[in-house]
């Protein structure tokens, strides 16, 4: 029975509409911050994370906000960050594409605790694959080391629930999470894991040409793992930097403008080398 349900789950995972290797990158230099002394910069770029391209033009997000719980036993609160969002032109080999940046004012993000920062984009038409992609992307920042709501879910249609603090992982750490569809764990679904191999050149608004890793095989670029029967996954992160986790086509909505829709969940994890 268990084997049968495993096969059914795997078939469903394979049969679902998926556009692989796409990642909404949410980049900020540091997610574990001792003290906020300046505005917090963030770049939001829709690309293929390991390859550093092709990079897609991204429409204005529907929502951009953080969720924060101040203190213990208090409710989490959402703060709208849309007023700080600006469209920028991101340089690619094929010309400029629209991306987004924000300088989140210090007085909006200086309190100690966790900030779950979320982008909810417009569905993107991937005409080459004949479908829309809508990635609900999260990155978490902590200020001052006081834990907050990092383990709370936000009720997104597609979401990765973190079982480790995404901002507190040494190189080699095992990251664990649960893939959720409208809050319900998704068994035996694919999670793509990609290293942000081409660091952002924020000043020139492009990805650095030279990658940090030369992967000897495509399967090592976009690594694919499956959740278990409880919707959980784990992945050991062997290199410092940014690791993106994408659960593909797990959201409940399957159609947009009469075409297939893949609602994906993205979570970014920053990995830190042990000091010498």
């Amino acid at each position: 029975m268990k084997i049968k349900s495993l096969f059914v789950g795997m078939l469903l995972a394979l049969a679902s509409i998926q556009a692989s290797a796409h990642f909404i990158v949410m980049y900020t230099p540091q997610t574990a911050i001792n003290r906020v002394t300046d505005d917090i910069p963030m770049n939001i770029v829709f690309t293929h994370a390991f390859a550093g391209g092709p990079t897609m033009s991204m429409g204005k997000p529907q929502r951009f906000y953080y969720s924060k719980r101040q203190g213990v036993g208090t409710p989490s609160e959402e703060v709208d960050l849309m007023p700080y969002l600006e469209e920028i032109q991101w340089q690619t080999d094929g010309g400029n594409v629209s991306a987004w940046e924000a300088n989140i004012p210090r007085n909006v993000m200086r309190s100690v605790g966790d900030y779950q920062i979320v982008v909810e984009p417009e569905p993107y038409l991937e005409s080459g694959e004949g479908l829309y992609i809508q990635q609900f992307a999260k990155v978490m920042i902590n200020v001052g080391g006081v834990p907050g709501n990092w383990l709370e879910t936000l009720g997104l249609p597609a979401e990765i629930e973190a079982l480790n603090k995404p901002y507190a992982n040494w190189t080699g750490a095992v990251f664990r999470g649960i893939v959720l569809s409208d809050g319900i764990p998704v068994p035996y679904t694919q999670v793509e894991v990609e290293y942000l191999n081409h660091p952002l050149d924020v000043e020139n608004r492009r990805f650095q040409e030279q990658g940090l890793i030369n992967a000897p095989h495509p399967s090592l670029e976009a690594q694919v793992i499956l959740t278990n029967e409880a919707g959980e996954f784990s992945f050991a992160m062997p290199k410092a930097g940014w690791w993106g986790f994408a659960a593909l086509s797990v959201g409940p909505q399957r159609e947009h403008n009469g075409m297939p829709l893949s609602q994906d969940a993205i979570l970014w994890v920053q990995v830190t080398d042990l000091p010498e």
């Binding site: 203190g71 213990v72 036993g73 309190s111 605790g113 001052g144 080391g145 006081v146 834990p147």
Partner: peptide
């Protein structure tokens, strides 16, 4: 001024 504990205690 804001305070807390590393284990999340109040």
């Amino acid at each position: 001024c804001e305070g807390g504990f590393s284990d999340g205690a109040s």
